[in-house]
Amino acid sequence: MHEYSLVQALVERVEQEVGRRGALAVHALTVSVGELGGVDPELFRTAFETFRQGTVCAQAELTVRLVPARWSCPACGAAIEKGAVLRCPACDLPARMGEGSDGLTLDRVELEVP
């Protein structure tokens, strides 16, 4: 249930941005969650619903983008199937994780500014 502490960090980051730009309100937020980011998107949404009350995000619409985990061979680039051994059978090298696979990022905020 670390989703609550993540939402707290998220709201603090948005508050910073609001302060920096003198925004009046936050209309929308987009967050990316990698499949290996250790975050349950549904729990994250629930935590956001609870935590945003009384914050700058109270009226903000949250979009959660799911980024599937991808693995590939660092040499030949061949994709490694989900659930397979994380090693390229042809090159005998450990697979490399694709970008965003374990990410957890605030991508975009839509701010209302005077």
Partner: peptide, 8 residues
Amino acid sequence: TELVPVEL
């Protein structure tokens, strides 16, 4: 007021 999208 204006709506400003900010990429972060």
